[in-house]
Design a protein around this nucleic acid. Structure first.
Lengths: 200, 200
DNA sequence: GGCGAAACATACGCCACCGTATGGAGGGGT
DNA sequence: ACCCCTCCATACGGTGGCGTATGTTTCGCC
């Protein structure tokens, strides 16, 4: 979430940077998915033309690759570092699950991630998705091991927990009316998830 | 899964029906998502031209609507009727979860559903998705109530169960290497899911 | 203050797809 | 046998996006 901010933002009237393009690409992806990462619309949104774009990038694919890479580095461990502030594994797990469930409640928060899941087949998306998921699973399993579970059981529960998050994100996006809508309901819901997923 | 089979299939050499077009649309959707439901490619795949298509349908949107409606009716309660064969609620829940998890292991089985989730914003997709999800949640909650849980708790657990399925389907599609790969591992995994989700 | 390169605009050809217009084939009914 | 209505092919114009080619500005720098 860095802010390079070379000059003005909306009507640049000045030169654009690679970060401007990747940033616009990620915004477009959040709104309309990978298909919305199109050169000419992005140029229009930035107040420029394709001439600018094709100086900074070889083609559309290069932009996609750069944007995804930026997302991965910007995004990785954003939650985890927050969770690590908690003392014991139990509290960490609650913070983690609470945070990710709550994130699905604020509209557009997981838009890029949902867009990537929607385009998981894409050759540039797949490896990013695999790495992020792998990291999440490993970290979550580690939390469960901290609760005293053996590695097998911890791995399975991590898979269940991550699946539950992904499915909830999907539901919150596709059918928000079928998902706990108030903070209190969500709190109760998170409590029940934790209760089930940490059951002895 | 009916087979109308008017005449020959691949090189029709005869007239096409609405079902031919919606069927081809669903196949294309399973392979390439909603974006792959394109008139001219479909016509080529059916050995016809656009002239045929625009006689049966007003436009591409009408085809999408018809295909989605067909999917919803063909698809609804396919699993549920199988589950209803089981005697007690406990066995029903196991059959249900086992079946849906196993379905994510056979490639392309949930392709259309994943494609719909990937395009949940589409005005024709959203209501279909909402209805199907609503039915699933209601049925799953009913199963949990059959186990003696009060409605609130049953609803929450149904949401958790459905979310877990959706997330698992997502993972199995995006990163199949991170998901239980053998029938034995999946059996153990399903057992653990059931153990957690039915915990007292 | 002029020069060269970096950054951008303009204009073009191309492709894939949508939708329309219009002209046939082909089979049923009488 | 004819006709008509169903079904389909052909041909066309239009749109949106990709990539290239080639000017044009703007800046750093000496």
């Amino acid at each position: 979430m860095e802010m390079v901010e070379r000059r003005a933002r909306k009507p640049p009237a000045t030169r654009l940077t690679v970060a401007d393009w990747t940033g616009a690409a990620l915004e477009a992806m959040a709104r309309g998915g990978l298909a919305a990462v199109a050169v000419e619309p992005l140029a229009a949104a930035l107040g420029a033309t394709k001439g600018s774009f094709y100086w900074h990038f070889a083609n559309r694919d290069a932009l996609i690759e750069a944007a995804l890479q930026r997302w991965e580095t910007d995004h990785t461990d954003a939650v985890i570092t927050m969770v690590e502030a908690e003392p014991d594994p139990q509290a960490r797990l609650r913070t983690l699950i609470g945070a990710v469930i709550e994130s699905t409640a604020i509209p557009g928060a997981d838009a890029i991630e949902l867009a990537m899941l929607a385009t998981a087949d894409h050759p540039h998306v797949a490896p990013v998705l695999a790495r992020v998921t792998q990291r999440r699973l490993a970290y979550t399993a580690q939390l469960f091991e901290g609760l005293g579970l053996d590695p097998d059981e911890a791995a399975d529960r991590a898979l269940i927990a991550v699946s539950t998050y992904l499915g909830h994100a999907q539901l919150a996006h596709a059918t928000p009316e079928l998902v706990p809508g108030t903070p209190e309901l969500r709190r109760r819901y998170v409590d029940r998830i934790i209760g089930l997923v940490t059951a002895v």
